[in-house]
Design a protein around this nucleic acid. Sequence first.
DNA 1: GTCTATATAATGATAGAC
DNA 2: GTCTATCATTATATAGAC
Lengths: 195, 195
Amino acid sequence: MTKKETPKPPPPSRTRDSDATRQAILQAAQQVFMAKGFDAAGVREIATQAGANVALINRYFGSKEQLFFAAISDQDHLAPLLAEGKDGFGLRLASYMANKHLSDGDLDPTQVFVRSIGSVTVGPALSEATQTQHIASLADWLGGENAEERAAMIMAELLGFDMLRRIAGIDAFNRPDNQALITYFARAVQSHVDG
Amino acid sequence: MTKKETPKPPPPSRTRDSDATRQAILQAAQQVFMAKGFDAAGVREIATQAGANVALINRYFGSKEQLFFAAISDQDHLAPLLAEGKDGFGLRLASYMANKHLSDGDLDPTQVFVRSIGSVTVGPALSEATQTQHIASLADWLGGENAEERAAMIMAELLGFDMLRRIAGIDAFNRPDNQALITYFARAVQSHVDG
DNA sequence: GTCTATATAATGATAGAC
DNA sequence: GTCTATCATTATATAGAC
């Protein structure tokens, strides 16, 4: 009794709020999985960053693997770019990929893919999702001859670009205002869009 | 080229032959590191596949990390393709990448890179090598304006292609005799070669 | 609902027998 | 030169106290 109406202010850290804890774990998982990949990420690190206890991860999500898929579900950053049509799509995509900020808190699907595709645990599921979701829908959007091959080529360019830029930190990809680079990237993508 | 002659028949498994053991470990390490990446590969698995004892890995190479760099050193599959000149380089590279067999015993630098670039232990060294060796030499070979940007774009296309084809196993990259795919890949690469 | 403490398994590395 | 046995560490996952 008298549990809910206590006159004292709430404790410094969140207590008795499963929804907020769940959300905090999910957000921390996104960041850590994106930064280190599935295998290298630890549940202790995720729990610490979420300000939650380690045991709650398994309580709410069952396992590290289930947490991973909960954290990366329904992410699609390409949709807004596709919506603007095929004219100039290459340039829009290239500008987007070249100007993405490295330290914003958002989850970046490209980064997650590149960092975890090698994992024997979650790699196959990531591959499956790439095939059935991203490449298939991109191929639909492209239309025309060899749509799936052209979609796969665009995806390869996009992922290779991000891998070298944000994970390997290759110089040529990280110079500020590198208009020449964007032009090259845009040209390659657009050529696959046009056929 | 056989082992030195011994008066008695050799034991069932290699004994008293440090050179052969060292070589067997090195070869097994190449295969396992290529298949699973640095973090996921285990020294026990490497030793077993080499038919050697686990303790010999550290005896001969010092550590798992030193074994990794010993296993991947001086590998460059691009040199023969570059030697034939810029005319038709895109098509030669595309054919080579699309037709590489997945199960031959050779070490594939592309595969190693993609599978281990995310590792916090060896990732930075892989990035450094990619920058200072492969991209730099490719840029030299290309010449002309923005050579480093064009070289980096070719490397991104090459790595993205292999990542989706051999690690993710994307359908569009693994159809036999997919001439259309090779044409698209070749066109993109050649455009960066020509400027 | 949250926590401490622990079970269980696997890792890289090493000491010392043969 | 090769092996067995074991170290110390770390990982995910869970049981049970509060």
